[in-house]
Computed example of a mutant assay.
Amino acid sequence: MSARIILRPLTPDDRSIWQPLWDSYCAFYKVALPANVIDGLWEKLTGGDPAIHGMLAQNPDTGDALGLMHYVLHPHTWSLKTVCYLEDLFVTEAARGQGVGRALIEWLAGKGREEGWFRLYWHTDEDNATARLLYDRVAGPATMVRYAISLTK
């Protein structure tokens, strides 16, 4: 792979590139989402929803998809500035360790600095050691514990 990585927003024409990445991401987390949820996500990512956005990482030489990132912008109670939640980050197994995940996170942090966001945050499973190595280098070890209550059956 070239040392360069193309990072760009998802477009409506990218469904066939995005879908295998999303399927692999869901498989990694052992989640099976209904088709209508996936279709709804795709519509939000590419239909102009001002809160949810998607990025694609590609090899500039081959055009192959290397990874994806979805992020959500929302208000915050401690600041009048926007907060960004990096909800999904996935890099193909073949591209791991080559700077793709770091490039996506750094792109998002740069965008946040340019736009004056208050904070960029994310979480991952405690046992996701590969991702945590990167996250600890990029952001430092996490100091918060996440709790969740499922509100659906």
Rank of each mutant, 00 (worst) to 15 (best):
A109F: 01
A27W: 11
S2P: 14
A109R: 01
L41D: 14
L73G: 06
Y121R: 06
G140Y: 12
W18P: 04
G40V: 09
I105L: 05
K111M: 09
D136H: 02
K81N: 15
G101N: 04
R8F: 07
D136Q: 00
W122D: 04
L68W: 10
A131C: 00
L66D: 13
L104S: 15
L134H: 06
N36D: 07
H70Q: 15
S24I: 04
T82Y: 01
I17F: 07
Q58D: 09
A35Y: 12
C26T: 13
A142P: 08
A27H: 15
L151N: 04
W18F: 12
E106M: 05
A103G: 11
F28P: 07
E114F: 10
G101P: 02
A94Y: 04
I6P: 04
G63M: 09
W42G: 12
L7K: 02
V138Q: 05
W42R: 14
S79P: 02
W117I: 01
W122Q: 07
D125Y: 05
K81E: 04
C26A: 07
G99Q: 15
Y121G: 14
E43Y: 13
L89W: 14
R146E: 06
W22N: 13
T46H: 14
E93Q: 02
L120E: 03
A139G: 06
E93D: 01
D88S: 13
W78G: 06
T77L: 04
F118A: 05
N59M: 05
W107G: 00
G140F: 05
T77K: 09
D23I: 03
E115T: 13
L21D: 09
D127P: 02
M1E: 07
I5Y: 10
L66G: 12
L104P: 06
W107Q: 03
P60A: 08
V100F: 05
L7F: 00
V100P: 11
T77F: 07
H74P: 14
I105N: 05
A51C: 11
L104M: 07
W107P: 01
A65S: 12
S16F: 10
A148I: 01
Y25F: 11
M144Q: 11
Y71Q: 10
A3N: 12
A95I: 00
M144T: 05
A51M: 02
L108M: 10
V91K: 11
R119K: 06
L66T: 06
M55P: 03
I17A: 11
A32T: 11
G101E: 03
G48K: 10
Q58F: 08
R4A: 13
G48I: 14
D49W: 15
G101K: 05
T46S: 15
A65M: 15
L45W: 13
S24F: 03
W42S: 15
L73C: 06
A95C: 00
A103P: 05
H76S: 15
V145S: 01
S16Y: 05
R113I: 15
V72K: 14
G112M: 04
D127L: 03
R113T: 08
T62I: 15
R96A: 11
A94Q: 11
H70S: 12
P20E: 02
V37D: 10
F90H: 02
E126G: 01
L10H: 03
N59R: 11
H53P: 00
L7M: 01
A148S: 11
W18V: 13
L7C: 02
L80V: 01
G116H: 03
L66W: 10
G112L: 05
